[in-house]
Design a protein around this nucleic acid. Sequence first.
DNA 1: TGTAAATGATAGTATTACTATGTCATTAAA
DNA 2: TTTAATGACATAGTAATACTATCATTTACA
Lengths: 225, 225
Amino acid sequence: MEIELQIKMNEKLFLKNPEQTELGKKIIRHSIQLINKSGFESFTFKKLAEEIGSTEAGVYRYFENKHRLLIYITAWYWGWLEYRVVINTSNIQDPKVKLRKAIQLLATTIEDDIRTSYVDESILHQIIIAEGTKAYLTKHVSEDNKDRLFKPYKDLCAKIGDIILECNPKYKYPKSLSSTIIEVAHFQNFFMKNLPSLTDFGNSKDESAIVSFIEDLVFSAINKD
Amino acid sequence: MEIELQIKMNEKLFLKNPEQTELGKKIIRHSIQLINKSGFESFTFKKLAEEIGSTEAGVYRYFENKHRLLIYITAWYWGWLEYRVVINTSNIQDPKVKLRKAIQLLATTIEDDIRTSYVDESILHQIIIAEGTKAYLTKHVSEDNKDRLFKPYKDLCAKIGDIILECNPKYKYPKSLSSTIIEVAHFQNFFMKNLPSLTDFGNSKDESAIVSFIEDLVFSAINKD
DNA sequence: TGTAAATGATAGTATTACTATGTCATTAAA
DNA sequence: TTTAATGACATAGTAATACTATCATTTACA
């Protein structure tokens, strides 16, 4: 039996749903590989089209431009991650154990999930670390936000914020702490691998050290009297 | 008497030192304005040249490309901020008061310093918030790092890390906490203004709320037994 | 006053980011 | 069964971007 896991995507993210055609799936799979390989700046629809044996215009039928494609794959990632947080914490009673689990899911690279045939999650995680913030660091954030393009990110953030409040209903900054956890998980990972002197785990190159740092930070903040 | 404050810049950041000519200073001043106005992506040397009544080729004599110019102005900012941290904490004995001061300097927009005639620091602060991370989020970070282009950022980070260690010599993550403070200060500011639901200070739009959040986070982490 | 540095003017190339139009195959109605 | 509509993709453009090269002119200053 074949199981396909589908993440429901906002219609405004694409011109034509890439999940519904072979070419569309190829676009997603190969854009993830290309962006990871050469970086978002040098990524072009022409290179992508050559890679998948199609044409530039073919790609433009699915996505308005490469920035929209970046928002699409980051939104996909956040949706997928929220799904993982939900299924991995649903049977846990203790909110602190829940939060620990969520931090671990956020800060650790995972293997490719075979149920999503056209997305390699381990590569996608690398893209989120290096390129993820570029999805919203633009002059048109507000319009994109009105189109709800960042909803998956905000939903994940809200979810983790709720777990924080479960741990300590009096903690004053659940949402800021939540977005901080997400961003720090990625930045510290990038620094560890590329600018190690900005971290305390330069040589180990070990993601579990990042998890420890974030846990220490988070739990000392919310456990404070 | 006129006082000019000069930040010493790494020679690899430019082809020709922009501080030493009128055109060079114009390039810095107007690129800061243009990047702030339209964002780094839509910023081009052609538009800049038109703005300052020069030519594209003229700008290329100073900077290899627009990304190097971005690194230049971010490096300038970090150098200037470290200078401010040093002079504003040098006469403080209590390391916790020092750290509080440093956090405040990092997270608060400052007025333009008239001693730096060709740089408007308040605009520059906005650029660092929205575009700063793009200076190092590239596929060529490591080479750029070898050229020491990020030294001012790393120096500032090390400085704050030292203050953290003064507060608590046993704290395990001084460098990671330091880089976290810097990054959190900026993206919480960005979120507050652009994606307020990711923060707990959406309506207030008040930087002092960010300072409070960071102080709470930092001091509960380093004061923990 | 001479000379080097700085700037300005002009032109050109390769690539990028996109648009417009045309063709072919499939399906759906007449 | 023909005809029309639709979708998938190719071809061929354009305007802007990111540079490089050359040469003339102005300015600084020794």
